[in-house]
Simulated assay, not measured.
Amino acid sequence: MAGTWRQAWLIVGREFKIDRYYVAGSIVFVLYMAFFGGMAIAKLHEEPRLSLVADLIFWIVVSMVGYYFSRRITKYITEDSYTQMLAYYRVMPISPQVIAMARCLQLILATLINGTLLFGTLYLFHSGIREQMNIESFIAFSLLWTGFGLLLNSIYITFELMLRGKAYFWYSLILTVILTAAVLILHFSGVPIVEGTIRICASKGLASPLVWILFGAGAASVYAAYVFIVRGIPLRDLA
């Protein structure tokens, strides 16, 4: 197990070094979206009509917290870059356990870094958010949405390693359409998502069961993705 961890961290370090400029671009993008997206959330208690805008923007922003830009992700359709990566690792050879662990570690690290920047910027730069939630409530809000991000990104990393580039694109697009439709249906049914989670976190804080259920589901989904990837990689046709 120690050898698996060591090899996984070597892959993670190598990937971050290669994509360091893309990572810097990701950080700038997260800060940009946190600042301008936070404007809608900060005004929710004054302008309820912004609820749909906040719902549509925020789930997309949170879903991207687990990623950082990379050359591989920009070429996954034209070059089927993830399949090429798996073929390279198979020749090395690097075990499925190492590949899966490295990808899950990348997801966790990206979520930690981007999530800290996202939620830190939201709270520090938008007084309207501080008026709606104290620090405990905002931590609960952050954990809740981090859980959602982990859950969603666990699906995405499974897609990227189990599917060819074009299939990955179409499955991701279908998932995006489904989630967008769900947001619209909930909103027009009188269930504002972001505003609703703010109310829950503001009233119950870290004592809210929903916070820990969703965060726990996100953590469990990362492990489930690891198991699925380990079992699926040896069965993939990489030719």
Rank of each mutant, 00 (worst) to 15 (best):
Met1Ala: 08
Ala2Phe: 15
Thr4Gln: 11
Trp5Ile: 12
Ala8Lys: 07
Ala8Leu: 01
Trp9Met: 03
Leu10Tyr: 06
Arg14His: 07
Phe16Gln: 12
Asp19Cys: 00
Asp19Trp: 02
Arg20Thr: 13
Tyr22Met: 02
Tyr22His: 05
Ala24Asp: 06
Ala24Trp: 10
Ala24Lys: 00
Gly25Pro: 11
Ile27His: 03
Val28Asn: 09
Val28Ser: 10
Val28Pro: 13
Phe29Ala: 06
Leu31Thr: 11
Gly38Asn: 01
Met39Asn: 13
Met39Val: 12
Ala40Glu: 14
Ala40Asn: 10
Glu47Met: 12
Leu50Asp: 13
Leu52Met: 12
Leu56Asp: 10
Phe58Gly: 07
Ile60Val: 15
Ser63Arg: 11
Val65Trp: 07
Val65Leu: 09
Gly66Ile: 10
Arg71Trp: 13
Arg72Cys: 04
Arg72Phe: 08
Arg72Thr: 05
Thr74Tyr: 14
Tyr76Arg: 03
Asp80Leu: 00
Thr83Phe: 03
Thr83Ala: 00
Gln84Phe: 03
Gln84Lys: 14
Met85Asp: 15
Leu86Phe: 04
Leu86Trp: 00
Tyr89Lys: 04
Arg90Tyr: 12
Val91Gln: 13
Ile94Tyr: 11
Ser95Leu: 06
Ser95Glu: 15
Pro96Thr: 10
Val98Pro: 13
Ala100Ile: 05
Met101Ser: 06
Arg103Gly: 05
Cys104Asn: 09
Ile108Cys: 04
Leu109Phe: 09
Ala110Thr: 10
Ile113Ala: 09
Asn114Asp: 05
Thr116Arg: 04
Leu117Arg: 04
Phe119Val: 06
Gly120Arg: 00
Thr121Leu: 02
Tyr123Asp: 02
Leu124Pro: 04
His126Val: 05
Ser127Met: 12
Glu131Ile: 04
Glu131His: 13
Ile135Asp: 14
Ile135Met: 15
Ile135Arg: 08
Phe138Tyr: 11
Phe138Arg: 03
Ile139Thr: 09
Ile139Met: 13
Ile139Asp: 12
Ser142Val: 00
Ser142Lys: 01
Leu144Asp: 00
Thr146Tyr: 10
Thr146Val: 12
Gly147Pro: 02
Gly147Gln: 01
Leu150Gly: 10
Leu150Thr: 05
Leu151Pro: 07
Asn153Lys: 09
Ser154Asp: 08
Tyr156Pro: 00
Ile157Asp: 08
Ile157Phe: 00
Phe159Gly: 09
Leu161Arg: 01
Leu161Thr: 08
Arg164Val: 07
Ala167Ser: 14
Phe169Tyr: 15
Trp170Tyr: 15
Leu173Trp: 14
Ile174Asp: 08
Ile174Val: 15
Ile174His: 08
Leu175Cys: 12
Val177Thr: 07
Thr180His: 11
Ala182Glu: 13
Leu184Lys: 03
Leu184Asn: 04
Phe188Lys: 05
Val191Asp: 11
Pro192Tyr: 05
Ile193Thr: 10
Val194Gln: 11
Glu195Ala: 09
Glu195Arg: 01
Gly196Ser: 04
Thr197Ser: 14
Ile198Trp: 06
Ala202Asp: 11
Ala202His: 07
Pro209Gly: 02
Pro209Arg: 01
Trp212Phe: 06
Trp212Cys: 02
Leu214Thr: 13
Ala217Pro: 06
Ser221Glu: 13
Ala224Arg: 00
Ala225Cys: 01
Tyr226Val: 14
Tyr226Met: 05
Phe228Tyr: 09
Ile229Val: 06
Ile229Ser: 01
Gly232Pro: 06
Ile233Met: 01
Ile233Asn: 02
Leu235Tyr: 14
Asp237Gln: 13
